[in-house]
């Protein structure tokens, strides 16, 4: 069964066509890799799926529901959650509070309940704190719980962003270059983590420049170039595809080593 189905997604910025009629179907429970040279339109596709940008044309069905007209924050409650290529944490907040923010869409305490710290609001708060600590521990950053997010190391910031995204209990988790800036050991760890996330029932869409990592982790891979889909299939098939080889090896887009 398809969890997400994109059809004919197009997007231009001024005269530049960043995406042209892109179709993509993501199966429930898979890890889908998304690759392409710089400027291929990967992040733009994320922005459209998450709702940060408006598509010029096309449709995005998620669990049978059209999402393109749904607000960003409402998509989160429906289970479409993303991380950012250039890490976007709440810098002044502690690591713990950043993860707590991930629970925003799963909790209900409003202004009045919070103002008087009603028993229900207090109970919810305690639950969120406990769950957040569990997530911090899961991503090995519990010791930094009271540090301001902006003071964490780069690798820990990446972990924290994933923890925050997981807190919202995504059904489709979209990771934009989660391994960027990580060393090899951290990269391997991330790979395991992505598998674990999938095994917990989350479908994952991951953009990555590190070919080895991406091919190792993905069930299927979609390749974008110049805003168009040029290949799709299991890693081995895609790696052997002529056009892909041309784009990556012949086209002079020499960043595949990440």
């Amino acid at each position: 069964m398809n969890l997400a189905e994109l059809r004919g997604i197009s997007k231009s910025f001024g005269g530049l066509a960043a995406l042209r009629e892109v179709d993509m179907a993501i199966e429930k429970g898979e890890i889908r890799g998304l690759i392409g040279p710089n400027g291929a339109g990967k992040t733009t596709l994320f922005n459209i799926m998450a709702g940060n940008y408006r598509a010029d044309a096309g449709s995005f069905r998620f669990e049978g529901r059209e999402l393109l007209d749904v607000a960003v924050n409402d998509r989160v409650s429906l289970g479409v959650v993303r991380t950012f290529q250039n890490i976007r944490l709440f810098g002044t907040m502690t690591a713990l509070d950043n993860v707590r923010m991930g629970f925003h869409c799963r909790t209900a305490a409003g202004w009045l309940a919070s103002a008087f710290n009603t028993r229900r609001a207090a109970g919810e708060k305690a639950w969120v704190t406990g769950e957040s600590e569990r997530l911090l521990a899961e991503l090995d950053i519990l010791p930094y719980r009271n540090e301001a997010a902006k003071n964490l190391s780069y690798g820990n910031q990446r972990r924290l962003e994933i923890a925050r995204a997981l807190a919202s209990r995504p059904r489709l988790l979209m990771l934009d270059e989660p391994a960027a800036g990580l060393n090899e050991a951290e990269g391997r760890q991330l790979l395991e983590r992505i598998r674990a996330i999938r095994d917990s029932g989350v479908t994952v869409l991951v953009v990555e420049h590190d070919m080895n990592l991406l091919m190792a982790v993905s069930d299927r891979v979609t390749v974008l170039a110049h805003g168009q889909k040029i290949a799709e299939g299991p890693p081995a098939e895609v790696q052997a595809d002529e056009r892909v080889i041309l784009e990556y090896l012949g086209g002079g887009a020499g960043h595949a080593a990440g």
């Binding site: 950012f84 923010m101 925003h104 305490a109 103002a115 710290n117």
Partner: peptide, 29 residues
């Protein structure tokens, strides 16, 4: 103080820190 240490207050601080990130984690900014 209660509001600020609770769910709505944290959402406000999130908006202050990064509006796009706040929206993308489910806050109706």
């Amino acid at each position: 103080a209660n509001i600020l240490s609770g769910r709505p207050g944290r959402a406000l601080i999130a908006i202050r820190d990064d509006e796009t990130a706040a929206r993308s984690i489910g806050v109706d900014v």
